[in-house]
């Protein structure tokens, strides 16, 4: 039976493999007809939502890949507002409210509160699958029927 996944990406786009792992997971899951409901970016992961990221042309274009995947598989890219504002990722609305000279959020991403993540945690079922290689032993590494996944 196809599952519907809510994915939390919390690792940095430059200092961790979180985004690459999450993207590979989404490729694999959608190939097997599973659905991706939402990808939520928290902590350093929000930096991928900047429209001012310029990567050398011969490198993997992370932000573009997220936008491409989201439109291809019809899921939302949600960015935590508190985490993004403290890292300089600011929407047009937030920018004018704070009297800043411009915005930095890539328009394909939408700004939400942590409450969205909390609600997703409440709605999704079963265990998470954690792709943190340094996870302490007390963390379950694998479980069946998961629907919520953290990429750290």
């Amino acid at each position: 039976m196809p599952a519907s996944f809510t994915i939390l990406v919390s690792g940095s786009p430059t200092q961790s493999q979180a985004h690459l792992s999450a993207i590979r997971f989404i490729h694999a899951a959608t190939r097997m007809k599973h659905k991706i409901k939402t990808v939520f970016f928290y902590q350093e992961a929000v930096l991928v939502a900047s429209r001012f990221n310029i990567r050398p042309a011969d490198e993997f274009q992370l932000t573009q890949e997220w936008l491409h995947l989201a439109s291809q598989h019809q899921f939302e890219l949600q960015v935590c507002i508190a985490a993004s504002n403290r890292r300089g990722i600011v929407s047009t609305e937030e920018s004018s409210q704070s009297g800043l000279s411009g915005d930095t959020l890539e328009p394909g991403f939408c700004v939400t509160g942590l409450g969205q993540l909390a609600a997703a945690l409440a709605k999704t079922s079963k265990k998470d699958l954690n792709f943190n290689l340094e996870a302490p032993q007390s963390t379950p590494q694998l479980a069946t029927n998961f629907q919520f996944i953290q990429f750290k």
């Binding site: 939390l8 919390s10 945690l121 999704t124 265990k127 998470d128 954690n130 963390t139 379950p140």
Partner: peptide, 10 residues
């Protein structure tokens, strides 16, 4: 962790 619906690590 086993008994929780989810575990999130920071």
């Amino acid at each position: 962790c086993n008994n929780s619906q989810h575990t999130v690590i920071f």
